[in-house]
Simulated assay, not measured.
Amino acid sequence: MSTQNETFYQPERFILIGIPGLEVAEFWISIPMCLMYVLTILGNSAMLLIILPQETFHKPMYLFLCMLSIIDLVATTATIPKILSIFWFDDKEIDFNACLVQLFLIHALSMMESTVILSMAFDRYVAICYPLRYTSILPNSMIAKIGVAAITRGSVLMAPAPFLIRRLSYCRNNVISNTYCEHMAVVKIACTDTTINQVYGLIVALLVIAVDAIFISMSYLAIFIAVLRLSSKEAREKALSTCAPHVCILIISNVPALFSFFVHRFGHSIPLHIHIIVANVYILVPSMCNPLIYGARTKEIRKRIIVIFKNLNFLKQFI
């Protein structure tokens, strides 16, 4: 057989196999996944509808929440419908270019979210350590610049990935062991040297995960030290309570991401279905939890939700 028949540089489509070993349970897995996706859409849309029209909410913390909601809506919509179609209709094929677009969006949006979470940590640091200078350090113009920086950082760092993947050869193997197109999952099935792709992925991950983790840790360490210096117990509790949602989101977002990152490179003994389930958790759970955690923990948002429901009940009397 000739070399031309054995290899091809750009397959027309990839096959997403779902969750190997759990094919029988995929339908039942899809039910909570669908419910979580609906909650993600409703929760993040509600955050945008509550915050954006109200000028009183046009403050750094709430604007960062809007950024998170937009990122989460795009990220989940780029992945979950396709995953559900795999589970429900056995629709496992995905066009090569669509796979690259999905891959780019997933990782670029993840980097943008990491940048926003880092900015939120800095926001809490300024609010607690320099409360009198808060508005001068973080005016709305600065928040806009941070938003642009987050988009630029994620897009620029992820831009080489599709081009690096296009240069790979796939020897009659276009089956991706995942429910969506992930960078390393696509790279692993190539039959040519993938050293450049792997080094690129490692460098980008270190630039985002390591750098952000260092600065986030420094911010919260400074916050913790500042809180301990407060003389009032109530002031300490209030300061710590404002940081609690941010720490929760940080844990929910980063733990699955780190697990997926290390498993791809070092966790060869971990069952494939565990890796894929965690990869799906990484996409869906933080996106669902962001509005739930912030909506439940932020007094101003809770008050606004109560006002909206009261208005709805008032309108029902005239319907």
Rank of each mutant, 00 (worst) to 15 (best):
S253P: 09
C66H: 05
A159L: 14
Y9N: 15
L221W: 07
K188E: 13
R153F: 13
S260Y: 07
N173W: 05
P286W: 02
R236S: 08
S85V: 05
P131N: 07
Y180I: 01
S169H: 14
I225S: 02
D193W: 00
I306V: 13
A149H: 12
V281Q: 11
G201Q: 07
P286G: 09
Q10R: 15
N280W: 03
C66A: 07
L35T: 00
C243M: 01
I251V: 12
V247Y: 07
S114T: 06
P256C: 05
I86T: 03
H107M: 09
F224H: 13
K82T: 09
N254M: 08
P20R: 04
N44W: 04
F224N: 13
I17L: 12
E55M: 01
Y37E: 05
T3D: 15
W88F: 09
Q317C: 03
T77Y: 12
I86Y: 11
I19T: 02
F259L: 06
T192F: 04
N97Y: 15
I223K: 00
L138A: 02
R124P: 02
C34H: 04
N290Q: 10
D91G: 12
H275W: 08
A213N: 07
V211G: 04
N197L: 02
V211A: 12
N313H: 14
R265E: 08
F215M: 10
S217Q: 04
I146D: 02
M61V: 01
R13M: 15
T76K: 07
I293G: 11
E182L: 14
R236A: 02
E234N: 12
I274W: 13
G147H: 06
S232T: 02
R133W: 02
K92L: 11
